[in-house]
Amino acid sequence: MEINNQFITPMRSWTLEDLRTQRNQRPQESEGATLFKDIFDNVVNNVKVTQADVENKQYLLATGQLEDAHSLPIAESKAAISLNMMITLRNKALSAYSELIKMNT
């Protein structure tokens, strides 16, 4: 019976220098981490944009330059929905993180 050593890596002893370099190395971002970061960045930017739109429409209404008064409540609703989505995403991320921490203990 012949053993295929193609997938077997021989073990070697660890040195103190190996452990130091492993601790100092920063882990690479996985594809999932960058995807979550991009999604979270988009959500935060969406909140900023919708809030800026509300502030602009409030200014226009206060100065009498807003022609359609119904656009302000619509903009406020959009801003509230985007803020609620960001808060929900944050809460889900914190919940998932705490579940991961519980798994390690």
Results as ranks from 00 to 15, higher is better:
Thr15Val: 02
Glu76Pro: 01
Glu76Trp: 09
Leu16Lys: 10
Asp18Val: 05
Gln22Val: 10
Asp38Leu: 03
Gln25Ile: 04
Ser13Glu: 02
Met86Ser: 12
Ser71Asn: 09
Leu72Val: 05
Met85Glu: 08
Glu67Cys: 07
Ser30Trp: 04
Leu60Cys: 02
Pro73Leu: 15
Asn46Trp: 09
Arg20Leu: 13
Glu55Asn: 05
Asn56Trp: 09
Thr34Gln: 11
Leu83Lys: 03
Leu61Ile: 06
Asn84Leu: 10
Ala80Thr: 01
Leu72His: 00
Thr34Phe: 02
Asn45Ser: 14
Lys48Cys: 03
Asp41Gln: 13
Glu29Phe: 08
Lys57Ile: 00
Asn45Thr: 13
Val43Gly: 00
Arg26Ser: 12
Leu16Glu: 15
His70Val: 15
Glu55Asp: 11
Lys37His: 15
Thr21Pro: 08
Gly32Trp: 07
Ala33Thr: 15
Ala75Asn: 06
Leu19Ser: 03
Phe40Gln: 00
Met86Thr: 12
Arg20Glu: 12
Ser13Cys: 05
Glu67Thr: 13
Val44Asn: 14
Leu83Glu: 03
Ser82Ala: 08
Arg26Tyr: 06
Phe40Ser: 01
Ala52His: 02
Ile74Met: 07
Leu19Met: 02
Asn46Met: 12
Glu76His: 03
Asn42Gln: 09
Thr63Phe: 02
Gln25Asn: 09
Met11Val: 09
Thr15Ala: 14
Leu72Gln: 01
Leu60Arg: 01
Ile81Asp: 15
Gly32Asp: 08
Asp53Ile: 03
Ala52Asn: 11
Leu60Ala: 00
Gln58Met: 05
Phe40Asn: 00
Asn46Gln: 13
Asp68Phe: 12
Pro73Ser: 07
Leu19Pro: 00
Gln51Leu: 10
Arg26Ala: 05
Leu66Ala: 03
Met86Trp: 10
Arg23Glu: 15
Met11Glu: 13
Ala69Gln: 14
Phe36Lys: 07
Ala79Trp: 00
Phe40Pro: 00
Gly64Pro: 00
Ser30Gly: 06
Lys37Thr: 11
Ile74Tyr: 12
Val54Arg: 00
Arg12Gly: 14
Asn24Thr: 10
Asn84Phe: 10
Asp53Val: 01
Trp14Thr: 07
Asn42Gly: 04
Ala33Met: 14
Gln22Pro: 06
Lys37Ala: 14
Ala33Phe: 11
Glu55Ile: 01
Glu31His: 00
Glu29Gln: 08
Glu31Ser: 06
Arg23Pro: 07
Asp41Phe: 08
Leu19Val: 04
Leu61Glu: 10
Ala52Tyr: 03
His70Phe: 12
Ile39His: 09
Ser77Phe: 06
